[in-house]
Design a protein around this nucleic acid. Structure first.
Lengths: 226, 226
DNA sequence: CACGCCCTTCACGAGTTCTCCACAATCGGC
DNA sequence: GCCGATTGTGGAGAACTCGTGAAGGGCGTG
């Protein structure tokens, strides 16, 4: 059984989430503020964390940052629609996904399941990465879609690999640029779009309706979840 | 019977080592300085070399470097405890093992046996590497394309061998330089290109359209896949 | 000590890729 | 459905990468 740590200061929401997760078969830990969250995360080693960004005292982003300093536990952020910039910062700090309030508990459970599935799958990390119909042979730098091999440039390869390593996980343009050129490389974020376009042309059956390399409107891109 | 070249400037130690090795059943050659060591190594082709790093005149590391330029004879370094950085550099230059002074002659003999055993195993294990029409006889350092033998320099041989051992696998210039000179050897990455050019001239039917030693644009080189 | 071999380095040209732009298409909120 | 914001797209020039011939120097050999 998987354990989920829910970090939420509003009692009503906390209770609601807890009940739904219980019903869905998860063990639930609760924390009402950042300090408690960090402490519980360390002592109980939950399988994943659902984190409200609108916490009192210690900011949710700060919690993310501190968790990431020592752990790679999957994190789903809860954010209000207005906090768009926070969402982006959160993803850049290494959160795995976000849910916008108001949300349906059903959606929350679905996302938690998806993230956990991903985390399990990612652990086996070897020389070959598989995601959907895509197979990526890293040392040989070869990519196949179904049984057909496609030719990618070095940059395209790197970009696709980054996304396919964690299907479903959302990456901002800045993160993807970092993956391509190393951190703090100044350039036009939208050149990512151009590469995405070129990759889609090579791997998507119908590039106008992407099924593998998906756009997350207002945020960035992700590789399609299973 | 195996021949060991002992390079040691302190007479007392040299004699001690020689006697022990004799008793252990080795033929022993002796050199008191780097120049003599290089000369003897070339003319007598010993099965392995025991090398004191604290030599006068030509430095022990320099001797290692020069030996490795033309030979893969196993080398055991003798070092004083203080010369830790030298040990590391030595291993990176391709020494096989090191012994810290003071040492027991028994340990020396044991290590020599171990290194020789390893060397033999290596020879027996992967004597010949085949990839496409290329056959590489490692102990004899001979390369044939189809049925024709080609003459490669030591560097070219090493480079081709590295690539041919894993056809299809992509190596960056830095990786290939490491394979040639040991890690952290500063040099112009594009000298790899020059060697590739020279190898192609020798093994490719049409060097303008390589079929065996392929360029991976923006990354490095690879040996052709199946 | 001169010679030859080999490795490194450089500079130029040819080819490939990346970036960036402008405009069109799409998305999300109202 | 309308509107502003965001993303898709084709193309052009900049930037980068690679092949190549040749120069220079180190090292071993005669």
């Amino acid at each position: 059984m998987k354990t989920v740590l829910v970090v939420e200061d509003e009692l009503k929401i906390a209770r609601l989430v807890r009940d739904y997760l219980h019903q869905a078969g998860f063990a639930v830990l609760e924390a009402a503020d950042g300090a408690a969250a960090l402490s519980l995360a360390r002592s109980e080693q939950p399988d994943m964390i659902v984190l409200d960004l609108g916490l009192p005292e210690v900011d949710g982003l700060d919690v993310t940052r501190r968790l990431r300093a020592t752990s790679s536990v999957p994190i789903i952020m809860l954010t209000a629609r207005s906090e768009e910039s926070d969402r982006i910062v959160g993803l850049e700090l290494g959160a795995d996904d976000y849910i916008v309030k108001p949300f349906s508990p059903k959606e929350l459970v679905a996302r938690i399941r998806a993230v956990l599935r991903r985390a399990d799958a990612t652990l086996g990390g070897g020389e070959v990465v598989r995601a959907g119909p895509i197979t990526i042979d890293i040392p040989k730098m070869r990519v196949t879609v179904g049984s057909e091999e496609v030719e990618l440039t070095a940059t395209e390869f790197q970009l696709l690999l980054t996304l396919a390593r964690h299907p479903g996980r959302i990456y901002t343009r800045a993160q993807l640029l970092d993956a391509l050129h190393g951190v703090s490389f100044e350039s036009y974020e939208r050149s990512v779009d151009a590469h995405v376009k070129n990759i889609r042309r090579k791997i998507e059956p119908n590039p106008r309706r992407p099924e593998l390399l998906l756009t997350v409107y207002g945020v960035g891109y992700k590789f399609a979840d299973a």
